[in-house]
Design a protein around this nucleic acid. Structure first.
Lengths: 333, 333
DNA sequence: CTGAAAGCGCTAACAT
DNA sequence: ATGTTAGCGCTTTCAG
């Protein structure tokens, strides 16, 4: 194994000079830098990560804890993970993968053993048991999602309130007056991640603001429940022409239920969804939708983390503005 | 930070004794072990990962390189990743996540810097540029998938030949005599991962063996191409009653095309697919299928790696037997 | 069964 | 602008 002393000897300098050439932490003459760089290349030198971590108390690794639980869309998680890795590499960091299953112990383990310098935690619940732990760690962290009481923890996520509002506004702009939102199962609004609640609020506020009528209807994630609900909605509100669906598994069933009731999409009823792009694109018809910008969330989360590692102040909350992509499921009334 | 000397002092022993209690590399009296363990717990001691790696030249971290490219099913990749992490933890190892994008340089970087002890590489191509590199590294690795020339590299994957055969056998057992396989796009058979080729061979062999008739038809991954091909097949072979589809994106389109031609599934034509369970379950009707056992592949890959790290010999090739799950898309002729 | 002590390879004062 | 050197915290001979 090639070590720093080998490089130093080969370049005719001291080990510290090699170290400084690498870190750029002090000025080096052009000539010396050139020689050292050449030696490094020639010998194929790679600093030993462990030695470096020991001496500098920086591992240049960040932990990323991902959820397994169904309920979180797999493509979203993957997109998020890859963008975190890519962004981390831009800052010369690597990513250690943890599963939600490891929980607080896992986070404590990698933090206390100095395996990682910082942590990113995805799928944060409203009352997440990991929060007190993260607060107690001496290492910076970023949460994806907003817990009930974030305190001074750094959080980032799609602005779900704005997403709900954007969907209502989209329907309003198309001339719809009577709308409805088909939401997540009731229990999701009670515990879980809180974003569901925010969508309903944003939707309701925008409905009011644009002088439309319509409320929010939680719905179990089964095709039968969707069919029932759609039937009921149509019966009770004959003038209904626009629906926001925020309940991934029943996006398709809702459309099918409408057709079964003799309504065409989008000619008779327009549908907007908050769901992964993949789902929206492959639906029949392709759905106008707001997607979770997984790539951007991941990238930004890393930027926040790096700023914190550098001791820079960062905003406690970052809300990413939603983007509504119009597709074939919405039309003017 | 609590260090080993703190624990040693607290327990009234030497640092090396603490180390040996932790590693179990030499016998310790019951009494001493008890005291040391108590001190460790009481002080909340965690060995510094970097220091440990430096002293022992073992980081207890394995690299996992995952593909981003579309074409590899996202849920399969995720299932694989989580099973690798879970299995690695059972062996007291952590997992460093790399993206395919990082390529050979990424692998070299983490290996040469001693960041990782071993590597798992997914989505291995027939002629993969990473193979020579992996061979040249002084660290053990396991490949998911079989390249054209594996040499003595350790590989593991579903036995795709057996999978193709199992599907043909399933149709034969149901009494089908005229069958066909709708395969991947032609270019997949030329380069790429080689497994596509193996499916066709297994299918063809079993068709012959069971005295059935039927060939393999590559197909572009578009609904139109699927429709064309189904139309042609039905026209040319009026007696056709069984189809194996090995082309994820067009599984649904094939079923729809059959219906458009007036054939019911499974009453008129039986369909078997080689695709992720998720897709098969949600199809209409749910598809009899062989899935890639992502969980098992991940777990076994880690076991192989750990064996290699321990200097134990392992088989160069591991082929996991396929499991065909009968669902609603196949019926007796 | 346990201790003492020599590094592992690198960084960061401290010098000059 | 560069060199010298004292650790970083742990494992592992070497001794007993």
């Amino acid at each position: 194994m090639v070590k720093i002393t080998d490089v130093a000897r080969h370049a005719g300098v001291s080990p510290s000079t090699v170290s400084y050439v690498l870190s750029g932490k002090r000025s080096i003459s052009e000539e010396t830098r050139r020689r050292v760089r050449a030696s490094i290349r020639e010998l194929g030198y790679r600093p030993h990560a462990g030695a470096r971590a020991l001496a500098s108390s920086r591992s240049n690794v960040v932990a990323l804890m991902l959820p397994l639980r169904s309920g979180v869309a797999v493509p979203v998680v993957m997109g998020f993970a890859t963008s975190v890795v890519t962004a981390a590499r831009r800052h010369d960091h690597d990513v250690l993968l943890l599963t939600q299953e490891e929980g607080e112990d896992g986070l404590r383990r990698v933090a206390d053993s100095a395996l990682v310098d910082a942590l990113i935690v995805m799928d944060v619940q409203l009352r997440d048991p990991r929060l007190p732990l993260l607060r107690s760690l001496d290492r910076p962290s970023v949460l994806i999602g907003f817990p009930a009481d974030a305190g001074d923890l750094t959080c980032i996520d799609l602005d779900f309130h704005a997403a709900g509002a954007a969907c209502a506004r989209h329907l309003a702009a198309l001339g719809h007056r009577e709308v409805a939102m088909i939401g997540s199962p009731p229990e999701v609004y009670e515990r879980e991640t809180g974003f569901a609640q925010r969508v309903t609020e944003g939707f309701a506020a925008a409905v009011r603001e644009h002088g439309m009528t319509g409320g929010v209807h939680p719905c179990e994630a089964s095709a039968d429940a969707a069919k029932d609900l759609v039937g009921r909605l149509l019966a009770e509100r004959p003038g209904l022409t626009g629906i926001l669906v925020h309940n991934e598994p029943i996006v398709d069933p809702v459309v099918r239920a409408l057709r079964a009731e003799g309504r065409r999409v989008p000619q008779d009823v327009s549908i907007v969804a908050i769901c992964p792009d993949e789902l929206a694109e492959h639906a029949d018809p392709p759905l106008s939708s707001v997607a979770i910008p997984a790539e951007e969330v991941g990238g930004r989360a890393v930027e926040l983390l790096m700023a914190k590692l550098d001791g820079e102040p960062v905003p406690a909350a970052t809300l990413l503005p939603p983007t509504l992509t119009p597709r074939a499921s919405t039309a003017p009334r």
